[in-house]
């Protein structure tokens, strides 16, 4: 079943590569036009950095991501006096490649995407902040979601059925649940009959709604399996009226995994990194209404993170890649399902 899964990944990889290329070219084009040249009046570290370019993905909770960064854009511009621009990529790899090529200073990405970036950039990228809940927890979950009117009640019911992953670089939509399944003695490459990448969390929900998958792995946050969840793509879409929560059912969860990090280029001046971290972390306390308006959980805040906090995710990704490279032919091939 491995080969089929790789087909799904390859399809996404090609698509991702093209999107990434467009994204990087777009950034390069902006540079060439001189629209993001440093302000001549800046001095010190501000002159050295010149601008703050933020990469936003359709990532872990796409409907709120851009709104969040637009709010930060104005806020960070006021504090740093830097020109702040937000670039949105269609997928994780777009942001990773732009960051690796020095086209971005800052981005938010899932742990798995960070692990990918870390492998490419080494210590030039570092996690520096992540969300923390009001109760002090700093993790989120991967939820296996099915339609409420389906017969599936447990993960066992999905043996041989079709599954939608989010993205190869998604923590909750790919890496972590696969790791967790293996811990439970289930090989995700042979357990499901069909797998494919949807390209994003929102796309996964829509594909499930349209009957393209029997189940999807999706981010779930703002709670625990015991308390229930309040945030994540499904809940955000529900609040916008796009879907009804009652139409879906969570039948299995994996986690918690460390919250998606905000990552920064470490080759930028230290003062820039400190100011940015301080400003972003202070927002929860200084403007709690804006905090909620940009889609973040009431009472939550940000905590500093280090590379060590994501080492387990980096190790999972390495193991995932090693396994794929080691024995691709030993497993039978599933049919690939297009999202």
């Amino acid at each position: 079943m491995k080969a089929g899964n790789i087909v799904g990944v390859k399809q996404v990889r090609i698509s991702t590569w093209l999107k990434s290329l467009c994204f990087v070219l777009c950034l390069t084009g902006l540079s060439a036009c001189g629209s993001d040249q440093p302000d001549a009046e800046l001095t010190g570290w501000q002159k050295e950095v010149g601008q703050l370019r933020i990469g936003a993905t359709s990532g872990e909770d796409s409907p709120t991501t851009l709104a969040r960064w637009t709010a930060y854009q104005k806020y960070l511009n006021r504090i740093t006096s830097l020109k702040v621009e937000v670039f949105q990529a269609a997928d994780y790899n777009g942001v990773i490649q732009a960051m690796a090529s020095g086209q971005l200073e800052l981005a938010q990405m899932g742990g798995a995407a960070y692990a990918n970036a870390r492998e490419q950039m080494g210590e030039k990228v570092a996690p520096f902040l992540a969300l923390r809940s009001a109760e002090g927890s700093s993790g989120y979950y991967s939820a296996l979601i099915v339609k409420a009117d389906s017969p599936y009640r447990t993960i066992e019911d999905l043996r041989g059925k079709s599954l939608g992953y989010v993205d190869f670089n998604s923590t909750s939509g790919y890496l972590f649940p696969r790791w967790a399944m293996r811990q439970q003695g289930k090989d995700p490459d042979t357990f499901f009959g069909k797998t494919a990448m949807s390209g994003g969390h929102t796309q996964s929900v829509l594909a499930l709604a349209n009957g393209q998958f029997d189940a999807i792995f999706l981010i779930a946050s703002g709670g625990t399996p015991e308390t229930g969840f309040t945030t994540g793509s499904l809940y955000t879409l529900a609040r916008k009226g796009a879907v009804k929560i009652s139409d879906y059912r969570i039948i299995w969860t994996a986690g918690p995994m460390p919250n998606s990090p905000y990552v920064i280029r470490t080759d930028r001046p230290q003062a820039f990194q400190d100011v940015t971290r301080g400003a972003m972390a202070a927002l929860a306390y200084e403007d709690p209404q804006l905090w909620v308006d940009i889609g973040l959980q009431e009472g939550s805040d940000m905590q500093p993170m280090t590379a060590a906090d994501y080492q387990a995710v980096v190790d999972m990704r390495r193991a995932e890649i090693a396994e794929r490279r080691a024995a691709p032919a030993q497993k039978s091939s599933p049919r690939s399902a297009k999202p």
Binding site: A134, R239, I245
Partner: peptide, 16 residues
């Protein structure tokens, strides 16, 4: 309760 718990309790999943 924490503000986070209030949000879980009162925000709901349906805007209506």
């Amino acid at each position: 309760i924490t503000a986070g718990a209030r949000q879980r309790l009162c925000r709901g999943d349906d805007p209506k």
